[in-house]
Amino acid sequence: MSDDHARRARERIVRMCANPEGGHLGGSMSLVEILVTLYHDVLRIDPRLPRDPDRDILLLSKGHGAIGLYAVLAGRGFFPEERLATYGAPDSVFTAHPNPAVPGVEMPTGSLGHGLPLGVGFALAARLDGSDRRCFVVLGDGELQEGSVWEAAMAAGAQKLDRLVAIVDRNGLQISGDTEETVALEPLADRWRSFGWTVREVDGHDTDQVRTALTDVPHTPGRPTVVLARTVKGKGLPYIEGQARSHYVRLTERGHRRAHAAVTRGRRA
């Protein structure tokens, strides 16, 4: 079932990238299984009540994954899938970074390093309310070069926010290439642990692994959880997988046919 949701989400993503404006293809494809698992199996949400005060919160801190988020929100029933056809058109609600006017989008993100501080705020509010609602923040790996991420990581550890969960889309690439050759992030798990977090490492395209890591939060009472999800940038399109050039792509009509065929084939494989 999750695989079917993931395939449909990828079809929507490549469709959006066939718009004249193009889209952030690679980093949206890498987080498909993460978002599908969250929206279909983990988050306590009701698409009919997108502002229900008791809902779990999902923040896409790597806002350039917006078309991935829109694709999954459509699949989860927050709005009719047909509305995605306006992506890239003048005055469309679907901007290239998350627009909170889209049902299901909690906060506008895109400038990197904002999601985790916001998440600390949501988690503190839940605690003050005596609520068991949780906050999940999806971060890019290149994004971890922003200092504000670590300000928030330190605050979350100090405040013992064990209902705050960060998920790092560890696709290993940023615009210039390998994160480790740009500004190295490793040893990443040790870095998070030293900030007071519990670390889970998973294959970010294996929905069972992702689900297991995101269920039963908190894993350690008094510690926030980070899931380091190993992913492949451009996942589903073998001819650009793992390549930095998949970051932002405008697909031609022919390119779209090829991409659509590839993601559809992926299901049968």
Partner: peptide
């Protein structure tokens, strides 16, 4: 950012 999350 924390303030914004609390306010929201």
């Amino acid at each position: 950012g924390v303030a914004a999350g609390l306010a929201r």
